[in-house]
Design a protein around this nucleic acid. Structure first.
Lengths: 344, 344
DNA sequence: TTGATTCCGGCAAACGATTGCAGTATGCGG
DNA sequence: CCGCATACTGCAATCGTTTGCCGGAATCAA
């Protein structure tokens, strides 16, 4: 085993011939220590490069000053999603600034609850609170709720429950995206979706699309909507275009799907935006770098992550006091070069 | 403050009227407890849904069963780099399977060492070991070395030192990429790089490019090499093409730069690969999805992450015993549609 | 000088586990 | 029926902090 010398509070006490309690009080800015002695203790502490032992402290204070980031998806899926990566970055920044440590884990299948494979930090209570990013099994949320753990849901919410959440205004965003195409003169607008499409974020965006059409007096046609994975964004677009050549505009449930759709259009030698306009959602970095650059609904991912972390930390300070907030971030229309007036 | 009921080892002991020591031994599969009693204790433990308290345990065992992932770059930079995201995923998988928790932090500037803003988990010794991904300040490495902390460097190494590392064979990879273009018949091959180009991974890849050229009897021409950021991959390519229209092939230091270069070529109405062939490095997901799909040198990021985690965990088990390994992963040529024979 | 009041600092009990050591059954042979 | 070895199990110290409580010194007013 490794042998590491670590100076403890005792060493300081011994060196200065005072009691450990006094040292503790001095180090933690607690009253009951004269300014002079406090200074002496501080000096000695840095001299011996003293670092508090998190375990010992955590044992008595029952706090770890660290929070957990829990993803409902596989880690590689989670991280390769630029949207979540942005949220992660926001969370990390906020927690770091508040001197909290950040633990990461994913909790995917429901089974993990029962076979005890839930992330250790949940089960052994080694984090003060949890940030749950994306859809996660309801059973986990119920579990956390019952055990009175502090947590905040990011980019996900359970319809019925009154939970602390930070989400995007998907409904309005979907609506705005569609309205953008409508205002350019498009009338035959398709929606290429992700999974699931019958609930969650993508469903809300679809609903916004639907609302916009209906407000514009255009009938919603189910055959112009296709779900599927990202790769499916490609196939879905082909399907749609072949079956409905009148389509001049596509609203995608997110940027990845939009990019895939553009790729599909290219294989049919259709030009974007001359032949078909495409608008995405999220504004991931690739949206800007792609060609043509992608019009999209921007969501401030960093800000969402930061806000969620703020809420959690605040909850931890205040205890149960405050009622759950539901914070909704707007999505902002960013017009780039993948959308334009329809062909005549 | 929140009030959470947690069952402790004491509760079990009381319920069964045995000593806490016995309970501890039973729960940890230590000898000295009859099979019968052990079973009874186990049952009671699950009945009361007992979870060991990490702090208490850590205090006596001096281990946390958790490791830290330290990034040298800003978190958002780190996460939006698909290469690192892959490594992260590999690390997460491996640590999860071994029941270790994973903490994340970034340590960017050197200043952070002195103003005490180094990640808490390093300083308060709350992780057993560290995985350092990407270039990080040497001072930090020195610090860790001196304090005898177990750590493994991933995708980074310090020339002189004999440290535990997991890296890519950049030299050979750069060479293979270049040889691929040479074998297709290209003779005027440029290199578009990242920063820094005078040391580190990109330098090694450049060196491989140079070796390949020289082995093929083609003089290395400094004016065909351009450094710069990713966005610079775009500008660098334009620069090069305008100054040296004879160029028919481009080796990029990584996929992001390759993609940027392709974008640049498009603005000059140059076709890939008909007019210019482009090859990248890393094989990030976008390489496959882009159009044209990108030929590249694949690096198995997940495997690298896993391997690094394995090494660290092994080190932790064995103590200082083993001498540092330097594990080198090969890069594999993946031919897609961005490379072809040069125009005549 | 005395009594009240304040302020400091020491003492020791937690927190929840692990673990060496000592003690007590139990079984077995004599 | 006794002694001895061999399991088991209990006791208590320990890890490094925090924190309530208490005693003593110092200050001040009367």
């Amino acid at each position: 085993m490794r042998y590491i010398v670590r100076t403890t509070i005792k060493d300081i006490a011994k060196a200065l011939d005072v009691n450990i309690g006094t040292v503790s009080r001095a180090l933690n800015d607690k009253p009951g220590v004269s300014a002079e002695l406090r200074k002496k203790i501080m000096r000695k502490a840095t001299e011996l490069s003293y670092r508090p032992n998190g375990h010992a402290r955590g044992l008595v204070t029952q706090r770890t000053e660290s929070i957990g980031l829990l993803s409902g998806a596989e880690t590689s899926t989670f991280l390769s999603n630029p949207f979540y990566a942005g949220i992660f970055a926001g969370i990390e920044a906020e927690t770091r600034e508040h001197n909290y440590a950040l633990m990461f884990a994913s909790a995917t299948t429901e089974s993990s609850i029962f076979d005890g494979r839930l992330p250790k930090f949940i089960v052994e209570h080694r984090v003060d609170g949890l940030l749950i990013v994306g859809a996660v099994d309801e059973a986990i949320i119920r579990l956390l709720n019952e055990s009175h753990r502090a947590f905040v849901l990011v980019d996900y919410h359970l319809p019925g429950e009154d939970l602390e959440t930070v989400v995007t205004n998907n409904l309005r965003g979907g609506r705005s995206a569609t309205e953008h195409l409508l205002s350019l003169g498009h009338r035959h607008i398709a929606f290429v979706g992700g999974t699931p499409l019958d609930r969650g974020n993508f469903h809300e965006r679809l609903q916004g699309y639907r609302d916009a059409l209906e407000s514009a007096g255009i009938a919603y046609r189910e055959e112009l909507v296709r779900g599927g994975q990202i790769v499916g964004g490609h196939d879905a677009a082909l399907d749609l275009l072949d079956a409905h050549p009148e389509i001049t505009g596509i609203v995608a449930c997110n940027d990845a799907n939009a990019l895939a759709a553009i790729g599909a259009l290219r294989t049919r030698s259709l030009k974007v935006p001359e032949d078909v306009s495409v608008i995405g959602f999220d504004d991931i970095p690739a949206a800007q770098e792609s060609w043509p650059s992608l019009s999209t609904m921007r969501v401030d991912k960093i800000a969402m992550g930061r806000k969620a972390a703020q809420r959690l930390l605040q909850k931890l300070e205040e205890g149960e006091a405050s009622a759950p907030h539901q914070i909704v971030f707007p999505a902002e229309l960013i017009v780039r070069s993948s959308t334009g007036a329809p062909r005549k």
